[in-house]
Design a protein around this nucleic acid. Structure first.
Length: 423
RNA sequence: GGAGGAAUGGCAGAGUGGUCGAAUGCGGCAGUCUUGAAAACUGUUGAGGGUCACACCUCCGGGGGUUCGAAUCCCUCUUCCUCCGCCA
């Protein structure tokens, strides 16, 4: 969430910047300021009451010590009204603080200055494109047909076992998927990311920490018996490793990578665009996460983008990079680059990675701070990106690498899966 | 799942109702000494709110309660340890 101090100091600038998201935050921010004012005034009043009450208690203690019981009892009576006053003030304070928090949770991150204006994904700005789109023969198949033809993925069987959107990978399909995971993790660790294995369920506090809650409440699977959420991305457990941490500047940068399955309810999604591997309830993803000094975070973001580019270059997939417009930008992000692979047989672009800088937005919720050599404390910047999301990469590979007599395996993956060809 | 024990500052570890934000040790930082370093010695060293700065307030796993007053007593939750049971 946004920092109160920033709102106090720069409200007008924030309102202007948030217009890129097509929202008018003026009223909300004014409300925040008035609630903050109220909260602080109440706090001061409460502090004074408590101070007085503390003073009296000490006096009473002294009187008891010196055997002055009568006077002590007289003073005791005086504390009753203070007690009642502080109780009331505490209630007022809690109500104001809660209202303030609720409101702050509803305000999205402020877009970076480079974020283009716009409403939908049509307004995203293409900043890079690379790779030749293969010329396929007329009878080229979409990946779900290929998956069936070569018995790589069984969507219907997944429906039986669980439901739609939970495919079952088989044989070389499963092996190829495993190869991709290993390959991605190796690329990431070579680039300086430390591999971690994290829980696939998280508690409510973690959901709030990275901003999935309360904004995307309905998008996560909720295990009510234990009040845990299935992770929609490894970002949640990995970034929350640093919740309530005060890091030393010398700890930075922190670079982590992890493979996890991701679970998304995708409520409201349907139609042709969710066919095959395009949109699933469970999918695999290798994530990269960085905790950075605010001064370095955009350099780090560029580094992450270059890193993902390197992987796609090696896989020889045609891709483009988009800078998301204000309307398409995620709630918690300040700047996001989406990577899309061209799916030749479907004749459309598929999002396979999203690389974002959240600046202090998550760190503020997480209470993730950095102390520099002078002992000065400030919120850290958090970043993350997919490197990469599996299903659509697989879809792109199957479709773009299909030949008349099967599917070729990209060269870099051969050592990982042990075969060169699927037929 | 059952029975017991525990949770205190970066770490270790005192503290069982009153000046305790908390002894002591280690670690960290600064200084003295030294060509430099180590050792030794001296000082300093938690977090949040609040203030121009002080004052002041809050925090001893989380929440609630008793009391004029709680790290200390009571209730509850969570986590960890030991024993038993179960188990990939």
């Amino acid at each position: 969430m946004l920092q109160l101090q920033t709102i106090r100091e720069n409200k007008a600038a924030l309102v202007t910047a948030l217009k890129k998201r097509n929202i008018d935050a003026d009223e909300m921010l004014s409300k925040v300021l008035s609630l903050d004012e109220k909260r602080r005034a109440t706090q001061t009043e409460l502090d004074n009451t408590l101070a007085e009450s503390n003073k009296l208690s000490k006096e009473i203690g002294q009187l008891f010590k010196t055997g002055n019981v009568q006077e002590a009892n007289a003073l005791k009576e005086k504390t009753a009204s203070l007690k009642e006053a502080s109780k009331k003030l505490t209630e007022t304070l809690n109500v104001a603080a809660e209202e303030l928090h609720k409101l702050l949770y509803q305000i999205p991150n402020v877009p970076h200055e480079s974020v283009p204006a716009g409403n939908t994904d049509a307004d995203n700005e293409e900043v890079f494109r690379k790779g030749d789109i293969p010329k396929l023969s007329g009878d080229a198949l979409p990946h779900w047909e290929l998956a069936k033809k070569f018995d790589l993925i069984d969507f219907e069987l997944g429906v039986k076992v669980t439901g739609a959107g939970f495919p079952i990978y088989k044989g070389k399909g499963a092996q190829l998927q495993r190869a991709l995971i290993s390959y991605f993790l190796d690329k990431n660790t070579e680039a300086g990311y430390t591999e971690v294995q994290v829980p696939h369920l998280v508690n409510e506090a973690s959901g709030y920490g990275t901003g999935q809650l309360p904004d995307k409440e309905g998008q996560m699977y909720h295990v009510t018996a234990d009040d845990l959420y299935l992770i929609p991305t490894a970002e949640v457990p990995i970034t929350n490793m640093f919740r309530d941490e005060l890091l030393s500047a010398t700890d930075l940068p922190i670079q982590l990578t992890g493979y996890t399955p991701c679970f998304r309810r995708e409520a409201g999604s349907y139609g042709a665009h969710v066919r095959g591997l395009n949109r699933l309830h469970q999918f695999d993803k290798v994530e990269i996460v960085r905790i950075e000094d605010p001064a370095n975070s955009y350099k780090a973001l560029d580094g992450m983008v270059e890193h993902v580019k390197g992987i796609l270059d090696e896989l020889k997939l045609p891709y483009r990079i988009l800078r998301l417009c204000g309307g398409d930008l995620g709630f918690t992000s300040a700047l996001t680059y989406d990577f899309e692979v061209f799916s030749t047989a479907q004749d459309r672009w598929l999002e396979i990675s999203s690389v974002s800088n959240f600046e202090t937005y998550q760190a503020n919720r997480l209470k993730l701070r950095v102390k520099d050599a002078d002992g000065k404390k400030q919120l850290a910047h958090t970043l993350n990106g997919s490197a990469l999301a599996l299903p659509r990469v697989l879809a792109g590979l199957l479709e773009n690498y299909q030949t008349e007599n099967g599917i070729k395996v990209p060269e870099v993956l051969v050592p990982y899966c042990g075969f060169e060809h699927i037929d």
